[in-house]
Amino acid sequence: MSDITDISLQEAQSLEERAQFVRLETIRLIEIAKVGHYSSVFSCAEIFSALYYDVMSISDDPKWPLRDRFLMGKGHAAVGLFPVLADLGYFPKDWLDSYTRLGSPLGDHPDMRKVPGVDFSSGSIGHALSNGVGIAMGGRMQEQNFDVFVMLGDGEMQEGQVWEAAISAANHKLSNVIAIVDRNGYQLDGKVDDIMAIEPLDEKWRAFGWEVHEVDGHDIVALTSILRRVKADKMREKPCCIIAKTVKGKGIDYMETEPGWHLGYLSPEDSEKARQTILNTRISGDPQ
C-alpha cells in the first residue's frame, strides 16, 4: 500500500518543473523592475511549488473560507509567488507584465488588498507568524479545519515578535500552524550567523513548544513528503516547524557563492544566460 508521503517520479517531475517556472518567471519579472530579490526566491522556489501544487488544500476560489492559508514573513520573495497565483488562475496572467509599474497590484511585497490569492500582506519582517496564529485562532472559533503555512526567513528569526507568536501558538495548541523556515543562511548584510547567530535553531523551536523537522529544502521529494506528513498528522497537539535547509540563489552559481545577491539586477543578456542555466538544470527523470 502506498503511503501518502510517497512521491511518484511523475509528481516529483511536475513539482520540479513548477519550481523551475517560479525561477524563470522571477527572472522575467525582475527584468521589468530592474531590481529585485532573485536569490530570496531561488531558495524557496521548491517550497512554493510543494505547497501550492501539492500539499495545500486550495480551490479555484482564492477566498474559499476552508482553504489552507499561506503567509510569508519574507514578503520580499513575492515576485516568486505572483506567477504561482496567476498560474492558479487567481488573477489574469497579464497582470504579471505590470509588475512594479505605476498602479500595479504587484509590487516587491504581497498586498492582500490588491492581489487575489494573497492570504495576508507582508513586508514588515516578523509579523507573519502572528498573523497566522490569529488566522488559526479565528478558524478554531468557527470550527473550520484548515491549515496555516507560514514561511519565515532565517534572518527573520532575529525579530522578537516571531518568538511571541511561537510561544502563543504552542500555548494555544495551534497544531494546524506549520512554520517553514527558509534556512538559506544569508540576510541583507551577510551571513545570518555572522550578523546575529540564531543556532541552535531546532532547539529554540523545540524549547518554545513546537514539533521540529529538518529537511533539504531543494529536495522536492523529501520536502513534499514531510509537508504532506505534518499536514496529515491530526494527532499532533503542537504547532510544527520545518527547517528547510536551502541555498540562497539556488540554481545560479554566482548567486550561490557570492554574498550580496539579496538584492540585484541582471541585464537582459545575463538574464538570458541565467534562464538557460535554469532550463538546463537537471530535474527528476532526466538522464544522468
Partner: peptide, 28 residues
C-alpha cells in the same frame, strides 16, 4: 471562553494576530 484570547504580555503579537483573525470573519 472560546472567543476570548489571553495573549500574555505580547502586545505586538496580539495586534498582528487580531488582524489575521479578522480575515476569517471574526470581529476582534
Amino acid at each position: 471562553p472560546d472567543r476570548f484570547v489571553q495573549f500574555g504580555i505580547s502586545e505586538q503579537n496580539m495586534v498582528s494576530a487580531a488582524a489575521g483573525m479578522a480575515t476569517t470573519g471574526m470581529i476582534p
